[in-house]
Amino acid sequence: MNRPLLVTSGAVLLLAPCLLTAWLAFSPDPFFTLPIQAWSTRWFIALAGDPQWRLALPRSLCLALASGLLAVGLGLPAAIALARSPSRWILPALVLPGCLPPVAWGLGLMPVVAGLEPLARLGVLVVADALLGLPVVLLVLRLRVDKTLFGLLETARGLGASPFQAWIRIGLPQVLPSLMVGWLLAATLALHEPVLCLFLCPAEWETLPALAWPTLRSSLTPVVAAAATVTTCLGLVFCGLAWCSWHRR
């Protein structure tokens, strides 16, 4: 099979559900009747007009960006350590949270965080989301944190730079694109993580997936389709930014 045909058929298969939801979100009909006869932004206006949804979006974004930042902060030292001397058990231990069923993980954490202040619960949620994004960060950092980087750092040290200077002036510019990509991808994953939010999110800080959950469980409303379209677009914007960071000279 030739490449354009495979990529096109793959795109149709993999993107069709997201495109259908976007299509439904732009339909004026509240009962999702197909085929759609007219186009409207009324559900997006309703989304923006509802204070709950309006607050949930920036909350989700803050949570996602903070989780991504923490994942990068944890991932960079771990990637350096793993690149210097690979270990048989450290990498599996670091990707362990990603292997746990989120429902069981959330259930186990819920009694632990139940007595905590909302801010502390939020902190646990940020850490849990960061640990879920950690494998992606490690994967991306592996592309730049390698023997070439260590060689450059050694050369800088040999030419008289202190370890700190070598890292700031040589190491950091080398790994910065990876850090940006890792941050944005981990943030994208955190933005879309619905299950841990259900268990750990404090009621005062409901995120978009947590707010959409009751509606998704009972009857679907077009506002949820609009919210899903918005989160999908946000995820794609993050990915676009990651692409630009990677290719920036």
Partner: peptide
């Protein structure tokens, strides 16, 4: 990357 919400709604 597009998240689970959109496919679940569809």
């Amino acid at each position: 990357l597009a998240g689970p919400l959109a496919p679940l709604v569809a």
